[in-house]
Every structure is written in structure tokens, then in C-alpha cells.
Simulated scan of single mutants.
Amino acid sequence: MNNEICRYRIVSEPRRQSLDALLAFCAAHEAYGTLVDLFPSSAKGISARTDFLATAEPSLEFGSVDRWPLGEPENGRIGHSVPLWKFPLTPSFIDILAAKARSLYDWKSPKLPEDLAIYRDNGTVLLGTVSHECIGWLNLSSQEASSPQLGLVEIIEARR
């Protein structure tokens, strides 16, 4: 069986049940996730950040990056440091993710932190998103891609 990892593009945005299925799939296979804190400094942004942190903070590890976590080395530069929140992919944090967002691309400011990403134990990306551009992808083996857990998520293999 081929264990090579290939990129699969998410064709239509996972919403509600399909988002729940996607998060359950990721939780069953992976170790941790990240979100980028790009909340604006407006009153609305500060309020949204405070609301999110009130729920999620006990599980978050706080760091910062000066490159977009999912960007390629040549185009991932941000130009300044931004907060990066790392979290364990536990059932309780999956519940937080599902309660805060109704769809995969809801992860953008000013309402929520940006660009949900989920990583394998070895640090490689399993699920990546660029929410404001409505782009999502999964890096999967052929066996993972055919998993019944992903049955509600429409994916196609990305051609390089």
C-alpha cells in the first residue's frame, strides 16, 4: 500500500456536520493545532479576542512567528512578529473549535483568530487553511484520503 503523502484540496468549505467530521478525523490522527492572532486593535477586535481567550486560554501555548506558519519559505514572511497560539487536539479543544466556528473559513479576524492549522506529531501539516482566501488542504496518504471519516468532506488530489 502506498504511504506517500499527497496534497488534497478541499473543494467546498466544510460546514457544521462536515466540519465536525473533519475535526474528528484530524483529532484521531494528529497531535496539535495552531491559530494566528491577527485580531485588530479596534474595540470589536479586542472584544472578540477577549471572548475567545476566555474559553480557550487554559489550553493555549503562546508564542510568536515572523513567518506565516503555513507559508512557503519564499512567500511566508510577515514583516513583523505576530502571536501564534498552539493547542492540543483534545476532545475538549475540538468542542471549542466547533462551538466558535460554523465553517472552516470562519477562522479569520475580527471575529476569530486566523488560519486554523493541524499538525502531525512530526510537525508536518495535516490540515492547512488560508481563511480569508477560502483555501484549505489536507496532506494525506491514499489510505487516509479514502477514510470513511472524511466522507462528508469534498477533497480532490492537487496536481503539482
Rank of each mutant, 00 (worst) to 15 (best):
A24N: 06
P148D: 13
G33T: 00
G63W: 05
I46T: 12
A43Q: 07
V11S: 14
S146Q: 14
L97G: 01
A43R: 13
E30R: 04
A27G: 11
P88W: 07
L112N: 04
R120N: 14
L38Y: 12
R77I: 09
V130I: 12
L38T: 06
G71T: 04
H29R: 05
L112G: 05
L89D: 02
L53P: 02
F93D: 00
D121V: 08
D106A: 10
L127G: 05
W107P: 01
F93V: 09
Q17N: 14
V65G: 11
T124F: 10
S146T: 07
P83V: 01
I78G: 09
R102K: 09
A56I: 09
W107E: 00
S59A: 14
C26H: 03
F39E: 09
P88R: 14
R67L: 11
R7G: 00
C6M: 09
T55M: 12
A54S: 13
Y105W: 10
L22P: 00
E61G: 06
E133R: 12
L89A: 12
A158H: 05
D106H: 10
A28R: 06
I156C: 08
A28W: 03
G63N: 13
S142Q: 13
E144G: 03
Y105I: 00
V65E: 08
F52W: 13
G136N: 08
L53K: 04
S41M: 10
R102G: 14
P83Y: 04
E13I: 09
E133D: 13
K111P: 04
E13G: 07
I156K: 08
E157W: 00
S103C: 03
S12K: 14
P91C: 15
Y32D: 01
D121P: 10
A24S: 15
H80I: 06
G123N: 02
L53H: 04
R120V: 04
D51G: 10
L22N: 00
H132L: 08
N139R: 03
L38D: 14
E30L: 03
R160K: 10
R7M: 06
R7I: 07
E114F: 02
P40Y: 11
K111G: 03
T34L: 09
V153K: 03
S147Q: 08
S64Q: 13
W68A: 07
L22D: 00
Y119K: 01
K108P: 00
A28H: 07
A98Q: 14
P91V: 08
P88D: 07
S109H: 08
E154C: 06
W68H: 15
Q149A: 12
R159I: 13
F25Y: 11
T34R: 02
Y105A: 01
V36I: 10
S18C: 08
S42A: 11
F87R: 04
L23V: 14
A158Q: 07
L84T: 05
P113Q: 03
S141D: 00
L60G: 00
T34V: 05
S18G: 09
S92E: 15
T55K: 11
A31W: 02
A101G: 01
G79C: 11
G76K: 10
L84N: 01
P110G: 12
L150I: 05
L53S: 01
L70Y: 04
A145G: 02
I118Q: 03
F62D: 00
K108E: 07
R102S: 12
W85T: 01
D51C: 08
G79I: 07
F25S: 02
E30V: 02
A31T: 11
E133W: 04
I94Y: 05
S81T: 14
C134M: 14
V65W: 04
A99Q: 13
